[in-house]
Amino acid sequence: MIVVKNLEKHYKIAKRDPGLRGAIKSLFHRKFETKKAVKKINMHINAGEMVGYIGANGAGKSTTIKMLTGILTPTSGEVKVNGIIPYENRQQNASHIGAVFGQRTQLFWDIPVRESYELLKHIYEIPQAQYEETLKEFVDVLHLEPLLGIPVRQLSLGQKMRCELAAAFLHRPKVVYLDEPTIGLDVAVKVRIRAFIKQMNARYGTTVLLTTHDMQDIEEICQRIIIIDDGSVIYDGSIQDIKSQFGDKRVIHFELEDAADSFVLPEEIRALTEVLPTSDEDPHLVSLSFSNKHISGAEVIHTMMNHYSVADLTIADAKIETIVEEIYGRGMKKEVQHEEIR
């Protein structure tokens, strides 16, 4: 259904010296810097698959999605969605796809939801009978009935997202791109949305490409994940595989009494554990990652307690979340080192 070969996207960024002089100088000769947002990506997604597409911010996720939807033309490489090259036949491609882009609404802001759907019916040329049937189904599953008469601007975030999803699936598209469909929603709505996506897939064989930061979404919806980092695919495989591959990974978060910047890994465990970078928000936090094949959690905790006064600790188990955190962590560390070299 989706075939991507050696896909690349480079951006040219005009470099400008600061200040007025820089502005004038840039009028005459511009210096460009090429940023490779996506580097030689390959992927092959079959009809009916539900794939989680994950990566840190700026890793190249949305650039890829934009190329798949035809909004962006690739620098080189090949994209085919349902046999169509999206950026060449954008409108043709558009009638077979659906999309939800996070917080940006696809619906018409000022008019009631039902009217929005009516318009979409005509835009996508959905036959009346099919439209009625689909809408009825969606209204039941997503509990849309009370929302249909309300203009989109008056809906809450969760209500809006439910309507949004219905709009994306309304014309029974072959592929649906979901970008952060559950961001900022409460648990009950998340559960409903996940159930809906699964049901659509089971019923119509819709191919789903899901990008999210919520690992719960991934674990419940997707059979397969693709992880992208710094423009390259660093993992592509089933969730089972990644679990067994990294299943022995453990992460323990230590809350120290003292600030963590003076923290040094104790000698005894230095060879077997690794410090993960943490956010600056909590200066007392230290996260250690290790494989429980080589060293047990108890041993790590014991050693840490001997050397530092630990206020609190949390053990993260081998959920996909931990694994991805670990993989991201490596990417982030690379970046940090990079920064230092510069």
Partner: peptide, 10 residues
């Protein structure tokens, strides 16, 4: 970024 919405319509 609202223009993207127009680009994915047929």
């Amino acid at each position: 970024g609202k223009f993207d919405r127009l680009l994915i319509r047929p």
